[in-house]
């Protein structure tokens, strides 16, 4: 019944590495705003946030070690949100 609790013990080291990556990206995203990149600033900030959230999802939230189903579901939910945003902007962008 209960195979879940004893598979994949994630080593501490991996978490610390991921954390280090996350902090570096946070500092990076702050640094980027200091440089004037015009519209690219927004883009860079969102891109870095997306990479960071992907890291949290894959490692901290164990998606990498989970079954395929869950991975597909999580991706679908993000796609859904993106589609809803896209369709909403079909209104605001062309008004």
């Amino acid at each position: 019944m209960n195979k879940h609790s004893d598979n994949h013990i994630v080593p501490y080291r991996l978490y610390i590495q991921v954390l280090a990556g996350l902090i570096v990206m946070t500092i990076l995203s702050v640094a980027i705003t200091k440089i004037n990149l015009d519209t690219l600033t927004v883009f860079a900030a969102i891109l870095l946030a997306s990479i960071k959230s992907a890291l949290v999802l894959t490692f901290f939230m164990h998606l990498k070690f989970d079954n395929k189903l869950l991975q597909i579901l999580v991706i679908s939910v993000f796609v859904l949100v993106a589609l809803v945003l896209f369709i909403t902007f079909l209104d605001y962008n062309f008004r």
Binding site: V84, L90, D91, F94, R95
Partner: peptide, 22 residues
């Protein structure tokens, strides 16, 4: 069914693109 919500708002003043899509 998740992406058709705008058909309740055809006369609300949405953009033409949104109208056609919905």
């Amino acid at each position: 069914g998740y992406f058709v919500w705008g058909h309740h708002m055809f006369t609300s003043g949405m953009s033409g693109t949104a109208l056609y899509t919905f």
